[in-house]
Design a protein around this nucleic acid. Structure first.
Lengths: 148, 148
DNA sequence: TGCAACTGAATTGCGCACAATGTAGTAGGG
DNA sequence: CCCTACTACATTGTGCGCAATTCAGTTGCA
């Protein structure tokens, strides 16, 4: 008590560790479900955007997912090699790359139908709780990105 | 409406993406604060445990942080090369490696004192809100890991 | 028109995460 | 005392995540 070793915060007290830990735990649950489809979790997120929006530029994907080309370029290359997407330069602007689903990529949508239910069940929360927590967490992320 | 392209969930509706995104956003804020100290965020977490517990085995660190030796071994090697920790085999069990802070590693504790306040401020929440959110998120992580 | 500034992707380098494997050390049963 | 099983850690390989750089293509302006 005399030299007071400074009050460094306990690990479990930190919101940051809670988010970091929960995010990894959730990704691990997704891994079990996505592995049979040959997908990783970030790849699945990219497909979600493509299923929702149709053909999308790399920069637009990056905007939705907050990922830069350093992450997306190799990820998209692997999806292309897997035959799930195609990449083509936009005619009116050769700098921009348009990412489109192949038929195989579109067909995967059906195979992922039940994943969401299983994940929600694994959280141990009911749907209103999940939605409330999601909105709170999304609000924090928005505030962090906006004031960065 | 005729062929019903299947109801794949919207990205923003997903609790998983919210956690994934918030975790990365928070790590990005830490990066700005930790970079001047030559630390990464996972390295900072390891130091938090060592400041709290004192000399700790690799497996104990892994238990606290939910990280395996594949992640911790190279991370600890970098902390050792930076002169912040030492690693030594336990005399009574040569399999176990005891991780201890050097004086430089212990001194870093003081330099990290204000980080926590700055991070809390960056979330846009007040302290009770942060604590409530932290407990909810930690509960989800616990449930996910326990039922995995 | 020519050229500087800008933009969108790709590449490079480094540090996690994590599965799978390897290895040294320990413990326990015969 | 062996021999097997087990444990703790290290290593290898793959895929993010992100900063920094490069490069082709575009835009704007003198």
């Amino acid at each position: 008590m005399s030299s007071s070793p400074a009050p460094s915060p306990l690990l479990e007290d930190q919101i940051c560790f809670a988010l970091y830990n929960a995010s990894r735990a959730l990704t691990a649950r997704y891994r079990v479900l996505l592995d049979p489809l040959g997908l990783t979790y970030p790849q699945y997120l990219v497909l979600l955007v493509l299923w929702e929006e149709g053909p999308t530029s790399v920069s637009s994907l990056g905007g939705r997912l907050s990922l830069d080309s350093g992450t997306l370029s190799p990820l998209l290359r692997r999806l292309e090699q897997a035959g799930l997407i195609t990449r083509s330069r936009q005619p009116h602007d050769e700098r921009s790359v348009l990412v489109s689903l192949t038929e195989a990529g579109d067909d995967l949508r059906g195979a992922t139908g039940d994943i969401q239910n299983q994940i929600c069940g694994a959280t141990g929360l009911d749907l209103p709780e999940i939605q409330a927590l999601r909105d709170q967490v999304a609000g924090v992320a928005l505030h962090l990105r906006a004031t960065g």
